[in-house]
């Protein structure tokens, strides 16, 4: 048990160095909106999703309705649906631990779990106990979430104690999407999804007012993607 915690600490160290400053940035932004520090903690505990929480700051400020919150979150995290495929057979945790690992599957937890599983099967194929592996996956997820919650809380506390010039801190969100665009391109090696999105976004911005951009452009994108799929299955387009 102690040895698995020690090795989990070592594996999750890069996540620690990322989650603490990212969580702090989120906490500072939320505190800047006038929310008490514990709301940042609660969001880290119950939501535990970087992009969604940064998006939440804007949605809270706009006093968005629950339908909009749910739709935005579903679309924002839609990338998880495909990531999870690689883990279906490798998720060894059982019972409530399994539920917790699925709840805590952030981008970073996914990449640690998949990378760790791959390296373990190579280096140590005989000593592969599913129970130990499941326990280990649970510890990794819990450590990652504790780093995130600490970051969120510390940032919010700092923001409520001292005044901090947060001008430009909200750039974390476009920076995150830029990174995700690159990662998605590396994963799919296809240009057409981006071309469709670009056309839909620009035409929506030109034709409609910019506040309703997201829902309209997503609907258009979905329609064009479905059209592309139909053309591909009929063999008209490669």
């Amino acid at each position: 048990m102690t040895t698995s915690i020690n090795s989990a600490l070592k594996i999750t160290l890069p996540v620690l160095f990322g989650y603490i400053p990212m969580g702090m940035a989120f906490g500072l932004l939320l505190a800047d909106q006038g929310y008490a520090w514990y709301w940042a903690t609660l969001m880290g505990v119950f939501i535990f999703a970087g992009a969604a929480q940064f998006m939440a700051v804007g949605l809270l400020a706009a006093h968005a309705g629950m339908f909009e919150v749910a739709m935005t979150t579903l679309l924002l995290n839609s990338r998880h649906i495909f990531y999870g495929l690689s883990l279906i057979h490798n998720l060894k945790a059982k019972g409530w631990r399994r539920f917790y690992v699925i709840f805590g599957l952030t981008d970073e937890t996914y990449s640690l779990l998949t990378a760790h599983h791959a390296s373990r099967s190579f280096t140590n194929p005989t000593n592969q106990n599913d129970n130990d592996e499941g326990q280990f996956q649970f510890i990794i997820t819990a450590l990652n979430q504790s780093y995130w919650v600490i970051g969120c809380t510390v940032g919010a506390l700092l923001g409520s104690i001292i005044t901090f010039d947060t001008t430009g801190l909200d750039f974390t969100l476009p920076a995150l999407f830029m990174v995700l665009v690159i990662e998605q391109y590396k994963a799919t090696k296809k240009v057409f999804p981006f071309a469709i999105a670009l056309v839909c976004a620009v035409s929506t911005l030109v034709l409609f007012d910019s506040s309703s951009m997201l829902l309209i452009s997503i609907t258009l994108t979905l329609a064009l993607l479905l059209g592309t799929q139909q053309l591909q299955t009929k063999g008209i387009m490669k």
């Binding site: 990338r79 998605q184 999105a197």
Partner: peptide, 11 residues
Amino acid sequence: YLPPAIMLLLL
């Protein structure tokens, strides 16, 4: 293919 499109839309 929806996630790559959505990420660019969000950007």
